[in-house]
Design a protein around this nucleic acid. Structure first.
Lengths: 122, 122
DNA sequence: CCACTATGGAACGGGTGCGAAACAAACATG
DNA sequence: CATGTTTGTTTCGCACCCGTTCCATAGTGG
């Protein structure tokens, strides 16, 4: 229930989750794209290009290109804002939600394995 | 103490740690390079190119190039095996150990923040 | 209308990772 | 030795991401 990690646990979890992520999902997303995707699915909408750029402290083209890539993968959808046609609102997709859910499953699963392997410790 | 995560916690932790990782460390390592680095520092030595390639299920050039990159960053060191000169043994460095430790700190810190924010829940 | 700003995207040049194949050196074996 | 095998690296062609810069469209205020 808690997430008070000891150093070896934290790194072990990160290590295992990274390995499993590569094996299940592949190396096709950069760390930045991952961050963008997770932010879209975990932070409350609406999301715009400039909002994401500011939040992640990157330039706008980075967001644009990431949306191109992830849009092609079907993980995300762009919609023009009807009320201010300059804006683009980024929407979630079913496929993207499943993708993010899969990432969560990996982490939970690796966390559980790690807990079993270590048992209860001081 | 435990690492039994609920879905929202797992993804929240991954999200926060990814964001913080990008902010503190930068986007200069790919997911694969991260996995290689963590494996070198968390799994028991010795580590060889082919061993890493097999463990991570990638081709050898991937390892070679990753070692080039991370070697240039000082995170890792190559040593020829004296007893079989075909082998290359990958050694850890002080700088690399600090780097990995920093990653652990990020995860622990974000985990703690997350726990505080959520409190005890069903 | 006409500047002026805001927003997202496109174009350019540089860097780098990738897979496949070829390569060089060190060992093993007949 | 001569041949084959193992190990790590290099090369090649491709693709993608990056930062900078510039551009097109949409809204704003005189």
């Amino acid at each position: 229930m808690s997430i008070d990690l000891r150093p070896s646990q934290a790194l072990g979890l990160w290590h295992a989750a990274t390995l499993e992520h590569l094996k299940v999902i592949g190396p096709d997303l950069t760390l930045r794209q991952m961050a963008i995707l997770l932010h879209i699915y975990l932070a409350p909408p609406p999301h715009t290009v400039r909002g994401l750029a500011k939040k992640l402290d990157v330039t706008k083209p980075v967001i644009t290109r990431a949306l191109d890539t992830m849009g092609a993968m079907g993980l995300v959808r762009r919609i023009r804002d009807e009320r201010d046609m300059r804006n683009v609102v980024i929407k979630r997709t079913v496929e993207g939600a499943l993708f993010v859910e899969k990432i969560g499953d990996i982490i939970i699963s690796e966390g559980r394995k790690l807990a079993e392997r270590e048992g209860v410790q001081p």
